[in-house]
Amino acid sequence: MLEVKNLSFRHKGQKKEILKEITFKANSGEITTILGPNGAGKSTLFKCITGVWKNYEGEVFVKGSQVDHLSFEKRAKFFSVVPQDHEPPFPYSVFEVVLMGRASYVGLFSSPSKRDYQKAEETLELVGLYHLKDYPYTKISGGERQLTLIARALAQEAPVIILDEPTSHLDFKNQSLILSKIKQVVKEKGLTAVITLHDPNLASLFSDKIIVIKRGQILHNGNPQEVITEEVLREVYEIGVKIVNHNGINLVFPQIKET
């Protein structure tokens, strides 16, 4: 379980607060989605929680223990992070990338142990990528790359997993494939997942809880049925939005102005 209390942040020497008094809880076994327009502070919030930015006010707890001000070695035992798609400088194999998730368990002057190799293989199996084990990470598809990074985060065995726009570079099929995989693993392992998404439809389909932020403040916080409404989305994105209910599923689409 992740708890963020009164987190405020501004860049050094600047007056403008990027985050204002952010307070929320994310439960284990659930996906908590942060929704908001570009520049709302989603990425900044993640950078504060994971310790990339240090000079914030407020507190962060994981399972009751306070984790802000821990070193990165210790933090890695609480958080694993799935970055947005990226290209590594060298063409490591899928397995070598996943094994990097064990870095916090490997001593400064040693190499991964048998157990680390086992863990990496297990997580590869779990996300269904074992057959690509020896492929160069640079030569697989975007969806497979995202799954590799998720496997790497899982190999880290941290209770909280943070995913920054896990679907942003993916096609229609891979978006739902990746999110279903995340949902399944989170339930199975009782992890606390915090993710950012751009698509309110995906958010309402896959999230247990949605937190809407705008201009660094939390506007709404609740389950998808409460949060994904025409009023809220209009308020956040400042465009007309229509919601249609079909067999109990809410579908969101923007109202396009005829010109």
Partner: peptide, 16 residues
């Protein structure tokens, strides 16, 4: 291997 993935990523993986 880990350090070559970039500063921020290596930090998230628990490297000083």
């Amino acid at each position: 291997n880990v350090l070559s993935m970039g500063e921020e990523e290596a930090k998230m993986l628990g490297i000083n």
